[in-house]
């Protein structure tokens, strides 16, 4: 496999995080190569979101290292963290659009704040990014509360890609959308990341979405990455946990307390 030889963009080593007695992550390790699209699958409450937020520095892990371009983000001083963060774009599960700002200011937020772009120019970029996710200029002046769920997801996607980040995270991009809109979002994600050449990490439990977006799929269970392989090979993973998860079966090694 050629891609394995490329540079490692993000590297997690034995990351652990507990909240009280609840050990959410224990010994999670994962390498993500430059330009690769990795999808992490796993059930609810298995530590997917905590893993993402740890890489972003929103949660500080108890132990382990997280390297982004070779720098340990868990030990960065605050003023350096802002620099690292500019490499990231993130699509939040609920959109997380700023409801006090119109759509275009949401999309252009990073440009206005950090790149100190003049408002007029930023508006132009915002409209262009909105167009790339299939929304017209009409939407730009509306407020997030006036949009449907699917449109909010698209605006959020436009915001995530607006600063042309090197790394983009997608937190359950299709949750809460109808199957057709979910597919539209999947297509937009594939298109946007190909255009930017970005490295992406997606967490989802939607297998259709995973198959469409992923180069590689990793399965998280009980705070660890228990399996990793390419997206085509997932049907024949030979791993009982992965088998159970992708077929959505209640019977198997993954026991769910009812």
């Amino acid at each position: 496999m050629t891609k394995k030889n490329k540079d490692i963009k993000i590297q997690l080593k034995d990351v652990c995080k507990s909240f009280g007695d609840n050990h959410v992550l224990c010994g999670a390790s994962l390498d993500i190569h430059k330009g690769e699209s990795v999808v992490i699958i796993g059930g609810s409450g298995t530590g997917k979101s905590v893993l993402l937020k740890s890489i972003l520095g929103l949660i500080v892990p108890d132990s382990g290292t997280i390297l982004v371009d070779g720098e340990d983000v868990t030990k960065l001083p605050i003023h350096k963290r802002d620099g690292i963060m500019q490499k990231f774009g993130m699509l939040f599960q609920g959109g997380a659009l700023f409801d006090s700002l119109p759509v275009w200011e949401n999309v252009a937020f990073g440009l206005l704040q950090n790149h100190a772009m003049p408002r007029k120019e930023a508006y132009g970029v915002a409209v262009e990014k909105l167009r790339s996710v299939g929304l017209g200029e009409r939407v730009a002046k509306l407020y997030p509360a006036e949009l449907s769920g699917g449109m909010q997801k698209r605006v959020s996607l436009a915001r995530a890609i607006a600063t042309d980040p090197e790394i983009i995270f997608f937190d359950e991009p299709t949750t809460g959308l109808d199957p057709i809109m979910a597919d539209v979002i999947n297509d937009l994600i594939v298109k946007a990341t190909k255009e930017l050449g970005a490295t992406t990490l997606t967490i989802t439990h939607d297998m259709a979405s995973a198959r469409k977006i992923a180069d590689d799929v990793a399965m998280i269970y009980d705070g660890k990455i228990i399996w990793r392989g390419d997206a085509e090979g997932i049907e024949n993973s030979g791993n009982a946990y992965v088998e159970q998860f992708i077929h959505g079966s209640a019977n198997g090694p993954i026991a769910i307390a009812v």
Binding site: M85, M90, A96, F98, G110
Partner: peptide, 15 residues
């Protein structure tokens, strides 16, 4: 803003 992850979003937008 905290509950709807808007504060996390601010962080990821380096603000």
């Amino acid at each position: 803003m905290r509950v709807t992850e808007q504060i996390d979003a601010l962080n990821t937008l380096s603000t």
